[in-house]
Amino acid sequence: MKNTISIFKRELSGYFATPVAYVFIAVFLFLAGLFTFNLGSFYERGQADLRPFFQFLPWLFLFLIPAISMRLWAEERKQGTIELLFTLPITMWQAVLGKFFAAWAFAVLALALTFPMWLTVNYLGTPDNGVIAASYIGGALLGGGFLAVGSFVSSITKNQVIAFVVSVVVCFLFMLTALPPVMSMLSGWMPAAMLDAVAGISFWAHFEAITKGVIDIRDGVFFASLIVFFLFANALVLDIKKAS
């Protein structure tokens, strides 16, 4: 636990040691605003809620989260610092969790910095703050899911560009499965049970469900098990690379 916290702290301060963190947050906030106010017709809708923002959030995360996760392990391997890290008396899990939680904390921080939008809707009207809170939690879980995928992909390669592209594609596939075009395409030949399973692994569907204001335990379990699964795969890859 102590070691996980030490790694967490080192990683998190690492984000702010270079301009990367600030550039990332600035880009995230700018795009979030752009999507919400321009493309999402925030004012024209005349409703005091943050639906336009949370509708675009998955797309924003799809590109920005892999940008955080791509360096997690690829950079360690490229710099050779993975040798420094793994010859310290720490376990694989302490390293994997420390890094993952640091990246997640950073993503949640970026998400939290969109709070002026929440202030704005509260100033303009009387939104359902419960729904907004649930949506933020959903956003954090979605970010965690993307990060776990990205962390896993990053452990496979030492090339950050490859890690980024592959993470985007994998996350995209996970989003895509429940979207109407895919569903209608698959429904023609796939048995209903399988169709449900495919729809069931969609990030989008679970995120969407949470943003409606209902935090169903199943959605929570979905994201939690997804994160655990990919972090487990992540540790497994690191272990295999140790022996190869």
Partner: peptide, 9 residues
């Protein structure tokens, strides 16, 4: 380690 790898940042 060989080459003394360290976190550059």
């Amino acid at each position: 380690p060989e080459g003394a790898p360290l976190y550059p940042d």
